[in-house]
């Protein structure tokens, strides 16, 4: 945690950070481009604008067309907010109260089990492939926090 604070302070001081309105501007332009691209995908293969936007911003960062200090602070701010932003989606369940009344307990049980299945199965599959890379293909798999 301490490291993180020092890191953000230094990045604000050393690099030329874009003011927050400018950072919002970068996001808006990307989002606008994404919303133009999203309808081009066929109905059977939907790719929503936020996902396209994420990919665009990633590609712009990788190609250095957009600098990290143009978007970093606003991005950190938005990510810190995300669990609050899901409150409206949660409250939206108020419209499905009749589904919940009829088969709620069963449904919620299955969803909870499915969540744990997704978490555990994907984690073990990933661990297996990393193990494979290390033991069979003798590659370096050590990773370090920065």
């Amino acid at each position: 945690m301490k490291n993180k604070i020092i890191h953000t302070q230094s990045s604000a001081e050393i690099k030329n950070e874009l003011p927050i309105l400018g950072q919002m501007g970068s996001f808006s332009v990307i989002l606008f481009a994404a919303s133009l691209i999203s309808p081009l995908f066929p109905k059977a293969f939907p790719v929503p604008a936020p996902v396209i936007g994420l990919i665009i911003l990633y590609l712009l960062l990788v190609t250095h067309l957009v600098k990290l200090e143009w978007v970093e602070r606003f991005a950190d701010f938005m990510i810190g907010f995300i669990s609050f932003l899901f409150v409206p989606s949660g409250i939206q369940l108020a419209t499905s109260l009749d589904i919940l009344k009829n088969q709620g307990l069963q449904l919620i049980t299955i969803i909870v089990i499915s969540t744990i299945i997704l978490l555990v199965v994907i984690a073990y599959t990933a661990t297996f492939f990393i193990w494979l890379k290390r033991l069979i293909f003798h590659r370096d798999v050590s990773v370090e926090e920065v």
């Binding site: 996001f27 990307i30 989002l31 994404a34 604008a49 936020p50 996902v51 936007g53 994420l54 990919i55 911003l57 990633y58 960062l61 990290l68 978007v71 970093e72 606003f74 991005a75 950190d76 938005m78 990510i79 907010f81 995300i82 932003l85 899901f86 989606s89």
Partner: peptide, 11 residues
């Protein structure tokens, strides 16, 4: 606002 928040994960 989930839309810009999703894009933010590129960082």
């Amino acid at each position: 606002f989930l839309t810009p928040a999703t894009i933010a994960f590129a960082v």
